[in-house]
Write a protein that binds this DNA or RNA. Structure first.
Lengths: 222, 222
DNA sequence: AAACGTAATTATGAATTCATAATTCAGTCA
DNA sequence: TGACTGAATTATGAATTCATAATTACGTTT
């Protein structure tokens, strides 16, 4: 028997959690904006019940803020949030790097290398969009390689939160070059299965990204 | 003007999230059990809407599992979950230890020392309950000391999840003694504001707890 | 005009209702 | 007796309704 087509997600609220989170992360719903319950219900064709269930989940994830009797607003991306989130993400990546060295098989490493090469090509072509996507895939693959669902879940949430700061737009040439170099180093360590080395590099890589973020924010705020 | 009494939590679902999570963590609702929606509604005196909202949040936190059209069950505490959670908690504690050295003031450190002394007294008196509570306070204070809400939130969730494994019941004498020694070392580093040292010790302390957990589980499963 | 007060409107939290999926239970047949 | 069938019952997901809080609109007063 052929592969049966995947069952569409069974419950509305699960689907809505992902859809709404995407709207927030993709900046379709802007920080500080009130979440337009009515419009969203209409555009998704659902009643308020599942939508509100989804909002409760999103609030617990930190993407929206609930105010009693005043509905939900899209959470702001504050400097403090980035200050808090990045060190945590960096440690999660460090752990992931260490574990990935242990658990990834050669094929898995090869797949990451391929994507890495594509990322470098995108860098050389100055294709920010392609770079961003390849970069995201690489980090995701390394996290997945740790074979730790809890680590993955917490990382995914935090990564989504900081992604809202949309840093790529004003990524400086220096930082971009530095990031590429860091990634080269990471690939070396991964091939050598140097767990501690890869972990440290991934942590440093993330803190470097953080520093660049802060610098860009400060420059923007002049 | 005197302190006005605190406003009782405004929304039912927020209150319910905490209450239900407690029922799960305190083992009043047993792993694998179906969550008795009806009974809970009656005993809390609320309708199904806010209770179900709370269940959605609890599902996203990993305390219950939702099955489409078959309601919610209390999540099992699997060995894999502990294997996944502990390394992550350990890294979060490491980070917290480092930051706490930076951000805690002398009064904060003194308060932790006091609680530490009480914990040691409980140990000498073989009072598991008092030990457990003091221990929990100390770890929480160190996490708080990091002054990082995101770190704190993620740690709190994971700590609650592993707490369900209720390890204290069969804490061995050797492990208990070792834990006390590790805590003594932590206090030394904290007073010295040795960030890296405290971080490493806290990580190791958590991994030691993890190892003892696993050992106890294996012994139990024979 | 600007500031205030009040009525009308809207939005929100929660209860209730409704359609349907899952489960239970009685009856049938081997 | 024990496995199967199908109706009755119950539980579940989602829509709808309802009471009330918040917001807006509109006069009134200075």
């Amino acid at each position: 028997m052929n592969q049966i087509e995947t069952i569409k997600r069974p419950t509305l609220h699960e689907e809505l959690v992902d859809r709404l989170r995407n709207l927030v992360v993709e900046d379709q719903l802007k920080p500080g904006e009130k979440v337009p319950e009515k419009e969203l219900c209409e555009s998704f064709g659902v009643s308020r019940t599942p939508l509100r269930e989804a909002l409760k989940v999103l609030a617990s994830e930190g993407f929206v803020v609930l105010q009693a009797n005043r509905g939900a607003r899209v959470a702001e991306v504050t400097r403090k949030e980035l200050e808090n989130a990045f060190p945590v993400i960096a440690r999660l990546e460090q752990l992931a790097g260490e574990m990935a060295c242990e658990f990834l098989d050669d094929a898995g490493i090869a797949a990451i290398q391929t994507r890495h090469d594509e990322m470098v090509a995108a860098y050389k072509a100055r294709d920010r969009q392609a770079y961003f996507l390849a970069n995201q895939d690489i980090h995701q693959a390394l996290i997945r390689g740790a074979d730790n669902e809890i680590l993955e879940a917490h990382h995914r949430l935090l990564a989504a939160r900081v992604r809202r700061a949309r840093f790529m737009a004003n990524l400086s040439d220096e930082r971009w070059a530095q990031a590429i170099e860091e990634h080269e180093g990471m690939m070396e360590r991964l091939h050598a299965r140097d767990a501690e080395g890869l972990g440290n590099l991934m942590k440093q890589h993330m803190m470097g990204k953080y520093a660049a973020h802060i610098k860009a924010m400060d420059a923007e705020a002049d």
